[in-house]
Structure formats: C-alpha cells, structure tokens
C-alpha cells in the first residue's frame, strides 16, 4: 500500500496518557472481519470511544472537541499485543500521521512504518512536557521534522531528536514501501532460495 510522503508535520495533538494501550483497544478483534482496507478509522478505540448503543462516550479524548490534530500522543508501551496491522491502519485512517510515545511495542512500530504512520519515540521527560503543553493549551502545535529527526513543541521551543533507521526514513520521505524495494532484488532472492535444503 503506498501512502503519502512524510516530510514535516505541524499539527495540534491528541493526548492519551495511558500506559500499555494494546492493539485490542486500538481496534477490537470483531472489527477485523473486513476483506478490504476501508473504514477502520471509524472503529479506532471503539470500546473506549462508544457505549454499547453506539453513542459516544463523552469522557474519551477522541470525543472531546477541544483536542484534535494529526498527532496522537500515547503513554508508555503503546501498541502492545497482537500483530494486526489493522491497528496502524485505524490510526492512519482516522487521520493521524504520527504517534508519539516514550516506548513502543515492536510489531506495532514496524507496522506503523509500513503504512505511513511515523512512530516517534521520545524520552519520558519530553513526553511529560508534551502532555503538559497540550493540557495548558490544547491549541499547542507540535512539529515533527522527519528529515532532521526532530520533534518540537512550538509554544515552548522545547525540542528533542528521535531515532529512525535511514532506510525507513528514506522510504517515508518518498512514500515508498518495502515491497518496492524487494521487487527490485528478486534475482538475488531466487538464487538464495536455490541454495536451500528445505
């Protein structure tokens, strides 16, 4: 799946300061029955977002009109649990392009990178600063600059750099994915496979 290029994202952010947000919360299993990649954003955080009768739960942050934007700021160990890429799709489909956390679960981080959502891992201190800035002023803008690998809180000027491997970075900057790369080296793959016993 190709996605939009990611260069610099400047946006307000939505705070979700819970730890261990797992993929079953991001997209409950009963919504994995699609055979197409469509409409997952509607069910993002379904059970936290809606009551049993589909009315919105006012206390949940996505239903609070004060907070909006293309950046989701989560608590520690964000995205633990299943390998369902649907979790990353739901986040992308809802309109987020970046998730910030002080710690990500592995498969989730990988899935994000494959579908065009940038996972930005920050220090616990910087994560605190972001939450505080948003709670002080929900209009606070965060700037994520992929080329420079920096994330900044524009109102305070606080900045931190983040890690991303250079290969994935190139891909995101150009909107390429791994399949494009792998296709280009098929001959090597075939000769490798020919040398295998099983």
């Amino acid at each position: 799946m190709a996605y939009d290029k990611f260069t610099i994202l400047t946006s307000t952010a939505v705070p979700l300061p819970l730890e261990n947000v797992d993929t079953d919360q991001i997209i409950p299993a009963r919504f994995l029955k699609a055979t197409e990649r469509k409409g997952f954003g509607d069910n993002l955080f379904r059970d936290w977002r809606y009551n049993g009768d589909d009315s919105p739960k006012e206390s949940f942050v996505l239903n609070n009109p004060i907070y909006s934007g293309k950046i989701l700021v989560g608590g520690k160990n964000f995205g633990s649990g299943s390998s369902r890429e649907h979790a990353a799709w739901a986040i992308y489909d809802y309109g987020f392009r970046c998730v910030v956390s002080s710690f990500f679960a592995d498969i989730f981080r990988n899935n994000c990178l494959n579908v065009g959502v940038l996972p930005v891992q920050v220090s616990p201190e910087f994560s605190e600063q972001i939450f505080n800035a948003i709670y002080d002023n929900p209009k606070t803008e965060i700037e994520v600059n992929l080329s420079n690998q920096t994330i900044s809180i524009l109102s305070t000027g606080a900045q931190e750099s983040f890690e991303i491997n250079s290969y994935k970075k190139e891909n995101m900057l150009n909107g390429f994915d791994d399949i494009d790369y792998l296709q280009s080296m098929k001959e090597d793959i075939e000769s490798f496979a020919n040398g295998l016993l099983l």
Partner: peptide, 23 residues
C-alpha cells in the same frame, strides 16, 4: 518464528522475504 503485519504478508507472498533489523 514471529508475527508480521499484513504489508509483510504481502511481501512474503510476492518475494518470500521481509525486511527486518536483527533483534
């Protein structure tokens, strides 16, 4: 042996490979 996302399922189907940093 490990779990992968759907994009990676597509990679394995089409090229029998995925792209992974060594843990």
């Amino acid at each position: 042996a490990f779990g992968i996302g759907t994009s990676e399922v597509e990679m394995v189907l089409s090229t029998q490979c995925i792209m992974q940093p060594k843990p």
